[in-house]
Amino acid sequence: MAAAIGAHAAQSLGRRVLVLTVDPAKRLATALGLDLNSSDERVVPLEHAKGTMAAAVIDSKKIFDEFIRSHAARSEVVERITRNRLYEQLSTTLSGSQEFTALERLLQAYESGKFDLIILDTPPTKHAMDFLTAPHRISALFQDSVMKWFMNPDAESKSFIAGLIGRGTRMALKSLEVLTGGAFIEELVDFFSAIRSIQKVLRERSERVLELLKSPRTSFVVVTSFDEAKLLEARYLQEELSHLRYHLKAVIINRAFPLGVPSDIQAVPEGMSPGSYVKVLNFHRLFREYHAIRYNLYEKFCRGLKSSIAVLRVPEYQVDVHGLSDLQELGKVLGGKEQGS
């Protein structure tokens, strides 16, 4: 979907577009028919395009490393952070880091000034909220009361804990240590005291991302499908977005009635074997009724939406939506309706 919107903006509106994906399963790469094994921006060839489109997969590890390299003032600090075992896990295998790197990558692309439109493909609903609140969580981490704990990076963890913090925290940390063991806490303390030196940059960057996300220049598009539970989920997401003061501009509903399939069939064709004819006709009825029920749910959902939010429908195609020409087609469908609402 992200690629479809991008292709349309590049092709018909002449924009310079960048499509970024956080999805570790590389589905965007598939959609573009490209091998996106590297995290570099690749130009996507488009036919008859006035603008340009590039695409990139977000490589967490690389962005983390670069971030630390460019912001840590001294090379020992870089060494210390990148040597930390938890850092290694954080930047490579663990899921929590994706949100941070994706947003950092978005900000970099925005600041580069190379693009008119940047499209970021976010994870499914379950993780969308983690993603959208990532800047808030980073800020919370660097609250003074929390950072005090990491005041003395060189001291032995236990002794400085004893010296600097209140009884409550001391007890709480003791119990955490009972649960996780001293080794884990030590790595954690080492990690945090090391990143303390780039605390200011981290906080600044996450504030800037937040500003960007809240800016009216940033639109959120929710993609959902024609069924009750999914529409409920979309409604929840819509509420959360407005709660965070992000701007939801459109809801795209996947898979309406398949394009090119007639909704009514009347005439009995001549010379048709009656048995198979009736079977297909009955099947068509079943098919139509099924879609009609789903359509009703959709109408109910639309009535509940704010009028400033555009609702676009994407029909199911006979062929799969992949490869660029299909995506462009999809982009046109979206684009055409976008202007109308």
């Binding site: 954080l90 969580r137 919370a140 981490l141 009361s145 929390v146 704990w149 925290t169």
Partner: peptide, 13 residues
């Protein structure tokens, strides 16, 4: 505890 909360939020894994 805020320290613990922050740690839990961000501690990898």
């Amino acid at each position: 505890n805020r320290v613990i909360r922050a740690l839990i939020n961000i501690a990898p894994g």
